[in-house]
Simulated scan of single mutants.
Amino acid sequence: MMQQSYPIGVPGQIWNSQHKKQWFEQQTIKRSYKQEVLGKIAGLHSLFEVIQYGALPYDTDKYPVFILKSSNWQLDRPVILITGGVHGYETSGVQGALRFAETVASKYVQQVNFLIAPCLSPWGYETINRWNPDAIDPNRSFYANSPAAEPRLLMEYLQSLNIELTAHFDLHETTDTDNSEFGPALAARDGVENEEWEIPDGFYTVGNNQNPQPEFQQAVIAAVEKVTHIAPADKWGKIIGTPQEQKGVINYDMAKLGLCGGFSNATYVTTTEVYPDSPSANDEICIQAQVAAITGGLDYILA
């Protein structure tokens, strides 16, 4: 645990609206949602119905949000939700969801119904940010009357379908910037002391401690291990400060924390975490690991 200064705000004091405005004005566009995400979604019409379920209020023309819905939807099939880009800076979550839709989903479309929302936070994707423009973390905001448009739009759309989810794969990354930028920013925003955790070198999953499904998590880990290495626990037997339940698996109370993985009553839920900054990984390996996580979990469910 350590105190780290941050250039915005007063240490020990919660940010006011002026501090949040100052933070927002420092953000810049670094990549294109239109080219890197929407361009790929446009090529998936043969397998999926491409549905715009809303648009982010910061710029409704620039930031429409889409979900891919199985075009051969059958009411008697399990419904599988895949979400990426809840944290926009976590690139392989977005690109992993798209890669799965492009290359592997066709193997399963006769057995399950898919709902794939590849990029919930397009502004965050473009600015490489954890937060939205209001300095709110979308992945702590999955609850009723959410102040964040990113989770609210998705939850409203899914509620309108009146369906039950069998499984939810929420694709994330843990990066070195969690300690260098996003952790210090969070501590400054909330007026608390910054805590740093040892960033795990490798892939791990987060299950829901209200419904952990350890065998399902194990199947995900086993599939990913064929692609990349699994994160070891630290010397205290923890991963990011949380006790390891089994190899590469920790559990959170997802609903209590407002996490994306906790908003539904899906039977099988996992949040994937890859480490793109590892010397043993690269962007392509991280994308492949996300795809492997989905396929490993699906094969377990269907078996």
Rank of each mutant, 00 (worst) to 15 (best):
P212T: 04
P214W: 04
E215L: 14
Q217R: 02
A223T: 07
K226L: 13
V227A: 06
V227Q: 09
T228S: 15
H229T: 14
H229D: 15
I230N: 08
A231T: 08
A231Y: 06
A231F: 02
P232K: 08
P232F: 06
P232L: 10
A233T: 01
D234I: 06
W236I: 14
K238D: 11
I240L: 15
P243D: 11
E245R: 15
E245G: 15
E245V: 13
V249N: 05
V249Y: 00
Y252T: 03
M254S: 06
M254K: 10
A255D: 01
L257R: 09
G258E: 01
L259S: 02
C260Q: 03
G261P: 01
G262P: 10
F263C: 08
N265P: 07
N265Q: 15
A266Y: 02
A266N: 06
T267C: 11
Y268L: 01
V269S: 02
T271V: 12
T272Q: 06
D277R: 02
S278Q: 04
S280L: 14
I285W: 08
I285N: 00
I285T: 12
I285S: 11
C286L: 11
Q288E: 13
Q288R: 14
A289V: 01
Q290V: 05
V291D: 04
A293W: 04
T295A: 10
T295V: 05
G297I: 00
G297H: 08
